[in-house]
Design a protein around this nucleic acid. Structure first.
Length: 200
DNA sequence: TGTAGGATCCACT
DNA sequence: GTGGATCCTACAG
């Protein structure tokens, strides 16, 4: 496998990238420990025009500044004062689109993931939420701004050929405050369990 | 400087 | 299925 090239992140259609990232391998190498898994859930946040986005209406703050840079870097922020959430910044400079990685299926370094999360079993429950997956992968604010071409965090391509029918689209989670934008079908789920059943 | 509210998770019923 | 934990961020004054 090979790291996704920077060009993969510069597409201007953030919804396209959100679907594209499903089934790819997300890796982190934190404290010299390799952990990773298959991306199974993403959400698209469409820059300045999307009420659910932190960059809605072009607001620039210290927190969101990274979203306005070039795509291919990580945007990590603290939610509810408790959970770190991991995003992929996409598109070119001044277009603050981002994809929230909501879930992965754990594959590599699962023992370390159990230690980090305090869980005892490796299953889909280990990293099936945006706060849980950052904890399992050891991601915190020190990763904010890191390049996906670097050695801390990256995404690799693979041989998984996902068909349209393997992807479920629906409204995003926890964005009820966003008015009609809360209804946009910008959440994408790749049902990895069903995929395995069908191909084996 | 104060305060309202949030891109969540877990324990408990 | 429901509610509390918990604290940072953004914005108003």
């Amino acid at each position: 496998m090979a790291k996704l090239p920077i060009s993969s992140y510069l597409h201007t259609d953030v919804v396209y990238i959100a679907r594209f990232l499903l089934g790819k391998y997300l890796f982190s190498n934190i404290d010299n420990i390799l952990t990773g898994g298959i991306i199974t859930e993403t959400e698209a946040y469409k820059g300045t025009s999307d009420k659910a986005s932190h960059a809605y209406s072009g607001t620039r703050t210290n927190r969101t500044e990274i979203m306005y840079g070039q795509g291919g870097v990580a945007y990590v922020y603290l939610c509810y004062g408790i959970h770190y959430l991991l995003n992929v910044v996409t598109a070119d400079v001044n277009i603050p689109h981002a994809v929230l990685i909501r879930a992965i299926y754990p594959i590599i370094g699962t023992n370390e993931m159990l230690v980090r999360t305090g869980k005892t079993k490796v299953n889909n429950n280990l990293s099936n939420g945006p706060g849980k997956l950052t904890k399992a992968l050891g991601i915190d604010l020190s990763i904010n701004g890191a390049s996906y071409q670097g050695s801390d965090i990256w995404i690799e391509d693979n041989k998984i050929a996902i068909k349209k029918m393997d992807i479920e689209a629906g409204p995003r989670i926890g964005v009820g405050y966003a008015g009609k934008d809360a209804l946009l079908p910008y959440r994408f789920v790749f049902n990895y369990g069903d995929y395995i059943k069908k191909t084996h």
